[in-house]
Nucleic acid binder design. Structure first.
Length: 287
DNA sequence: AAGAGGCCCTGATAGC
DNA sequence: TGCTATCAGGGCCTCT
């Protein structure tokens, strides 16, 4: 569900609320997530101060005072809710697609501080928690991931080295976190539209100018999405104020059958399943 | 070895 | 109203 921009929005608000605060206790209400919740999660976090809330790719990283890290991945449906303790039922929404009240079901984990608690909710259970002992292990864990689009490493020679002679289509590469990390199914469609590249295009056939566009628009689209507060595509009705605004900027995603938004293009947006993920594009201007 | 497809899970919505 | 089918923003695993 959440891609890099959405995770960044959650990180920002989480950092604002829990930075420098000490964890009093952790409740594991339901340990079944994508991977079983680490059994030592409570002990690992208890009495630790949250030095800072960081992010890499789609991971939220709680940096702890014991030099350890707690990674949170939201999967498809994970949301984080902040509950202030002292005011009865007062609720602050840190993740923009959820409802203004704490859901009744699927609250898996509660991280409790003196004056508030952080609740992790995940109906589909594709998210997970992971504990990491120190910064060396953290680096090691992320070394299997490709660079973020913002990284200097995500450059023309990198793309050339990875894509040259490859038959796999470019859409699948952009979704592949080992190639570039943080881009998901929505932003892949959007980035390729801006780049005027057909998602089914064989990666090995891309030219240098295509690499340039992919690099440029990856940054541009993600940055703009962050600026707009991310994308909210479901739960429109019951969000109150913390909803993202980037869905209004979608050029192709969820626009099947509608007119292409590119100036003077007469195309109609198509939807096609590419390796089981719906993909939106204009076959008139994306070649 | 690269690449395609299945699968994990619940909930919302569409169609009958 | 109530059933069934389809689809959803991720990513790991298996098979060819």
């Amino acid at each position: 569900m959440p891609e890099l921009p959405e995770v960044e929005i959650v990180r920002l608000s989480l950092n604002k609320k829990i930075k420098q605060k000490k964890v009093k206790k952790v409740l594991i209400r339901n340990k079944n997530l994508r991977f079983r919740v680490p059994p030592n999660l409570s002990n690992f976090l208890k009495n630790q101060k949250i030095v800072k809330v960081n992010r890499f790719s789609k991971y939220i990283i709680l940096q702890l005072s014991n030099k350890g890290y707690c990674l949170i991945h939201l999967g498809m449906s994970g949301t984080i809710h902040l509950i202030l303790k002292n005011k009865k039922n007062f609720f602050t929404n840190t993740s923009f697609y959820n409802s203004p009240v704490l859901p009744k079901k699927h609250n898996h984990i509660e991280i409790i501080f003196k004056d508030l608690k952080v609740v992790y909710n995940d109906p589909r259970r594709f998210g997970f928690f992971k504990l990491i002992k120190n910064s060396a292990k953290l680096r090691q864990f992320f070394s299997y991931y490709g660079p973020e689009p913002f990284s200097k490493t995500f450059n023309i020679s990198y793309l050339k080295s990875k894509l040259n002679n490859k038959s796999k289509n470019i859409k699948n590469y952009l979704l592949d976190q080992k190639f570039v990390s943080g881009i998901g199914n929505i932003y892949t469609s959007e980035i390729l539209f801006h780049s005027k590249i057909n998602p089914q295009k064989e990666s090995g056939k891309l030219k240098k100018k295509d690499y340039k566009k992919i690099i440029y628009y990856s940054k541009k689209v993600l940055n703009k999405a962050i600026k707009k507060g991310g994308s909210s595509i479901r739960d429109f009705k019951n969000t109150s104020g913390n909803k993202g605004g980037f869905q209004k900027e979608f050029k192709v995603y969820d626009r099947v059958g509608l007119n292409c938004k590119r100036f003077k293009c007469k195309g109609i947006i198509k939807k096609k399943n590419i390796t089981n993920r719906s993909t939106f594009f204009c076959d008139n201007c994306q070649k």
